[in-house]
């Protein structure tokens, strides 16, 4: 927010005069064998060195306090760069407007030797930044390239350690434009995205359930927001922008037990079959907590834990297919 531009200028005007004085003494000393230097002819061994640091007030951005860090000096002259000045030890000034000011401190000792230090301060009114909307990839579930395998609506949404990938499908008035979580399979969607810690976010998701089969395993859609705190130890997320760059396994969340650890969950929502096979919008909110990265995990549940039509992850969707058309996550400011 605040830019400091340091310009150090040290000028010792006194040294020159003292040097000339000593030179004069040395010259005259040749004439008299045992001449003693006169009182006061010794060089200023401890010339002043001016120095300070600037610090912006916490409550008024136009107010600055300056800590005087000069050495071997007794008197001080502050020029705050806006016409104001001070002879105090520590400086303090309230500026009238934003801008760049050169603050100059001249430190002098009792011999009249001076040293000058200057620093530019640039004052800009701090603004509480709006929390940006998070960036997710392929939130419309278009059929796009993957890092390996054929194009899929599920591109950018795969983590094979915790489920089977979703499938390309059509619906809601388009083609190859929705992702399908199959019945009686452990299909899932998983993507990591960057958030601002402790900020609030809204998730809007458009889904459709096939009409209930009436069996004992009705499908439900489960949506979780998982904190980055639960990522595999040592993992730092990379936020890819192209679906073809996304990894498909061995990253972020590496097991279903990690996913289901309550400490890792910022949000758990479950959709039951609305008995309406149209596309319906659901809205949820979550707070990012102590995370700068989170993962969105969506899966079909409701089926028996084992014996489904896919991999063995300890969960399966129920009897009905579920489709996801689109997803929007936005920051609440």
């Amino acid at each position: 927010m605040i830019n400091y531009i340091n310009k150090k200028k040290s000028i010792n005007t006194g040294v020159l005069f003292v040097s000339i004085f000593i030179l004069t003494i040395l010259t005259t000393a040749c004439d008299y064998e045992f001449d003693l230097p006169e009182a006061g002819s010794i060089a200023d061994e401890t010339p002043p060195v001016a120095n300070f640091t600037a610090s912006q007030s916490e409550t008024d951005f136009l107010k600055y306090t300056f800590s005087n860090l000069s050495t071997s000096a007794t008197t001080f002259a502050w020029d705050f760069g806006d016409g104001n000045s001070s002879a105090e030890l520590d400086g303090e000034n309230t500026y009238s407007a934003e801008g760049t000011y050169t603050v100059t401190l001249t430190a002098s000792d009792a011999l009249g030797v001076t040293s000058t230090f200057a620093e530019d301060i640039t004052i800009v009114e701090p603004q509480a930044p709006d929390v940006p909307d998070p960036v997710l990839v392929n939130t419309d579930f278009d059929k796009l390239p993957k890092s390996s395998g054929s194009d899929c609506s599920c591109s950018a949404w795969i983590n094979k350690s915790i489920g089977d990938q979703g499938e390309s499908s059509s619906g809601n008035g388009g083609s190859d434009n929705v992702v399908k979580l199959d019945n009686n399979e452990p299909d899932h969607l998983y993507q990591e995205f960057e958030v601002v810690p402790n900020a609030d976010y809204t998730i809007q998701i458009v889904t459709s359930f096939k009409s209930p089969e009436g069996g004992s395993f009705p499908s439900m859609l489960e949506l979780r927001v998982l904190g980055g705190v639960g990522y595999t130890s040592g993992y730092t997320p990379t936020y890819y922008t192209e679906t073809v760059d996304f990894p498909q396994d061995d990253f972020g969340y590496a097991s279903v037990s990690q996913v289901e650890d309550p400490a890792n969950n910022l949000l758990i929502e479950t959709q039951s079959n609305p008995n309406d096979d149209g596309y319906i919008t659901y809205t949820y909110t979550f707070n990012a907590g102590a995370n700068d990265s989170v993962a969105l995990f969506i899966r079909g549940i409701g089926g028996p834990a084992t014996g489904g039509g896919g991999g063995d992850f300890g969960y399966n969707s129920g009897d009905e297919e579920i489709r996801v058309d689109s997803l929007t996550i936005s920051a609440i400011n």
């Binding site: 916490e58 509480a128 810690p197 402790n198 707070n287 907590g289 102590a290």
Partner: peptide, 14 residues
Amino acid sequence: AIMAGGQETSVQAA
């Protein structure tokens, strides 16, 4: 920590 260097917070956890 939640204030994170800011001037105020109304985050529920804080």
